[in-house]
Design a protein around this nucleic acid. Sequence first.
DNA 1: ACAATATATTAGAAATACATAACAGAAATA
DNA 2: TATTTCTGTTATGTATTTCTAATATATTGT
Lengths: 71, 71
Amino acid sequence: MKNRMRMVNKVRLYRTYYQWTQQELAERVGVRRETILFLEKGKYNPSLYLAWELARTFRVKIEDLFDLIER
Amino acid sequence: MKNRMRMVNKVRLYRTYYQWTQQELAERVGVRRETILFLEKGKYNPSLYLAWELARTFRVKIEDLFDLIER
DNA sequence: ACAATATATTAGAAATACATAACAGAAATA
DNA sequence: TATTTCTGTTATGTATTTCTAATATATTGT
């Protein structure tokens, strides 16, 4: 979509803060473990649904969890 | 979990507030006019990228533009 | 009424999020 | 060391978002 912007996130940051495994977080938000892994690795960007669930699980705003920065 | 929740948005509300056509808004956020139409009609939910661009364009938070409610 | 513009509908293609599964290496722990 | 758990990789399949284009209807202005 936007070629000059790139999405970064703090999923791993918050997950390790809560001391959850990828599997634990995956179950909490209702996705597969690999989905969490790929998100953390920046291999793909989430849907708004998933972003919402993650932010809710971490008790933060979506804008705090995800950020759009210059490439 | 995901099935008992449904996403609503204020895209049409903010678009008409700014007196933009679907075409105008589409150009501002970099998508097709039909994408805006389907979003307003709730025919599909946006990517986080698009949600971000829309919120930025309307100068609101993503959580203000989109809401996850009980079905 | 006529013309121009905005919105709506449909269908198919393209792109990508996410699922699923199998396996491998790293790290922790007994 | 041996075993378990966690993380990473790859490959393939499915579902959904978005694009594209064509056409139809509604709305607005002259």
